[in-house]
Design a protein around this nucleic acid. Sequence first.
DNA 1: ACTTTATTTGACCAGTTGGTAAAATGAAGG
DNA 2: CCTTCATTTTACCAACTGGTCAAATAAAGT
Lengths: 200, 200
Amino acid sequence: MTQPRTRIQQKNRTVILSAGLDVFSQYGFRGSTLDQIAEAAGLSKPNLLYYFASKELIYTELLSELLSTWLDPLIAMNDAGDPVEEILGYAKRKLSMSRDYPRESRLFANEILQGAPRISASLHGELKDLVAEKAKVIRGWQAHGKIADVDPYHLIFSIWSLTQHYADFDVQVQAVLPVDDAFPGAEAHLEHMLRRTLAV
Amino acid sequence: MTQPRTRIQQKNRTVILSAGLDVFSQYGFRGSTLDQIAEAAGLSKPNLLYYFASKELIYTELLSELLSTWLDPLIAMNDAGDPVEEILGYAKRKLSMSRDYPRESRLFANEILQGAPRISASLHGELKDLVAEKAKVIRGWQAHGKIADVDPYHLIFSIWSLTQHYADFDVQVQAVLPVDDAFPGAEAHLEHMLRRTLAV
DNA sequence: ACTTTATTTGACCAGTTGGTAAAATGAAGG
DNA sequence: CCTTCATTTTACCAACTGGTCAAATAAAGT
């Protein structure tokens, strides 16, 4: 089942995952039902369970897909590049992900809010290691006087929060902001903040 | 019932609301059950329903309590004070709330993630108005050259995201950060970022 | 055309969920 | 002590939930 054989399977698994993403990203694992997902996918519940044996499997499939793509932008932050531009590039990639994949961002937020029961290991493993590695890179830049001497961890947290906010709190942003598209302003503000924060 | 008469009612309503906050802030409205809340409160389910007629009423009571305290720190931002210190003071109050009331922050986050079905009106009303008012104050400061010319809305969003992150994503912060207490570092970083962002 | 395999459906089930009703217990005042 | 009102418990219910099963239908290969 991991390798879909037919085109129908390929297509329906994709449809189900997208429907699951819609529902899970809004209501979290516990708050979502198979009926909701089945309806969003345009399939009957037993038919849905023909493709994924359980609710859990749809969810974990989504989570594991998410994790890899989630780390990529940070992995791409390159030791050899210009420090400010590297950090800014990372932040902008992250903001683009909030624009282009808001559901994934919200799925992640929901999982964390619920205590990260199914992703805790990855947080303490892959994510922690990756951040530690990049924190070291940032400290290297700081030792060479390339950027301001801020805590690398909180710098990374601030990039996460500033960018993910536009996906996770989209409803609030839309309600408050007297402008249709938040992203142009968000990007300008993000760039301003980070350039100033990092200037030596 | 709005005015609790006896001491037992006073106490049990408080216990229930706290238990509800525990549960709702983790799983959201849909993902939480009365049984969970009853157990957390140390009451039987029918006994719980003796104090609050429905799950919905516990939740909305929590939300309306939340909203007023949530706006206070921003309301306190004073036109007449020193601009940088006023904005910084607001940000620090907000960060303190993430430290002292993380459950409330997560409850709010969950409600927004689920599309703000029960708080949408307040977002488009009170919150929007308040932010518009404070945006005007900030623009006034900028017109007098007191702070840098950044978009007031995105400035406020950035304060929200930077501070709430430490409550909402606490599990992730704990997993990644090689330090017990994130808040001292968070506050220093927040101050650094904002002072630099706002400097003329 | 016919067989085999993949897909879809309808009927169903046991456990959970939000909520009710009435009886049982407790507290407090007269 | 006895009555009244507040509180708690027990038993219960209908709707929903995740999931199963066997039969029906559709595709594909021969």
